Simulated scan of single mutants.
Amino acid sequence: MKATYWQRGETLDYTPEKAVENGEVVSLGTRIGVAGGDIKAGELGHLHVVGVFEMPKAASTAITMGAAVYYDAGAGVITTTSASNVPAGYAAAAADANDATVLVKLLG
C-alpha cells in the first residue's frame, strides 16, 4: 500500500449539514472538533482537532488534570461521564466543582 500526504491533521476539512458558528463544538461520533470559523450549511470549512480549548463544564463537577472528559451534546457541556457522551480528550488543568469551564486537550 502507498500513502500520499494530505494535510498536517491539526484541522480537518468539514462540510456541515446545518450552519456551524466559530468556536462551536462539533461531534464527530468518536471524538469532537471545534469550528475554526463560521461554516454555512453544505459549504466546506474546517474543524480544529488538535489543541487545548476552554469549554463549559457540567455544574457541580470537579475535574482533575488528566481526567478523561466527554462532550454531552444534549447539555452542551463537558463531563466526566462516558455513558452515551462523545470522547472529547482530557482535562489540561484541574477545574473545581464551582468552575463554569474546563480546559480540554482534544484527542487529536
Rank of each mutant, 00 (worst) to 15 (best):
N98L: 08
A41Q: 10
V86K: 00
T80L: 00
A92F: 05
V26K: 04
E10K: 13
A73I: 08
I63N: 05
W6V: 11
L44R: 15
A93M: 12
Y71F: 15
T80I: 13
T80F: 04
D96Q: 07
E17I: 07
N22M: 08
S82A: 03
P56N: 11
I63L: 00
A67V: 08
V34P: 01
A59Q: 13
T61I: 09
E10F: 07
H48W: 14
G37W: 02
D38K: 07
N22A: 11
A91T: 07
A83C: 02
M55H: 03
P16T: 03
A88I: 01
Y90W: 05
A91K: 07
R31I: 02
G108F: 11
M65G: 12
V102Y: 10
V102R: 13
K40G: 05
A93T: 15
V49M: 09
V25G: 00
G89N: 02
Y70P: 02
T81G: 03
V102N: 12
A92P: 03
G9N: 08
T64G: 13
H46R: 15
A62G: 12
T79K: 04
R31L: 05
V34D: 03
T11R: 15
V25D: 06
D13C: 12
A73Q: 12
H46Q: 14
M65A: 12
T15W: 00
T64Q: 15
S60C: 00
V69S: 01
T101A: 04
E43I: 03
V104Q: 08
V102C: 09
V34G: 05
P16D: 01
L28G: 08
A58F: 00
Y14W: 12
T79P: 06
A67K: 14
K18V: 08
A93K: 11
A59Y: 03
K18Q: 12
E24S: 05
A93W: 13
L44Y: 10
A97L: 07
V69R: 07
G36D: 11
L44S: 14
E21T: 09
L12C: 14
A92I: 04
T30Y: 14
D38A: 13
A92N: 08
E24I: 01
A3I: 09
H46W: 07
A73R: 04
K40Y: 06
P16G: 10
W6E: 14
E54G: 00
P87K: 13
V49F: 14
V34F: 00
A91S: 09
L107H: 02
T11C: 09
T15P: 01
L47K: 06
G45N: 11
T64P: 05
A67I: 05
N85H: 11
E24L: 01
D96Y: 03
I32R: 06
V104F: 05
L28H: 04
A67N: 13
Y70I: 02
I78D: 05
A95R: 06
N98R: 07
G42W: 07
S82K: 04
V26Y: 01
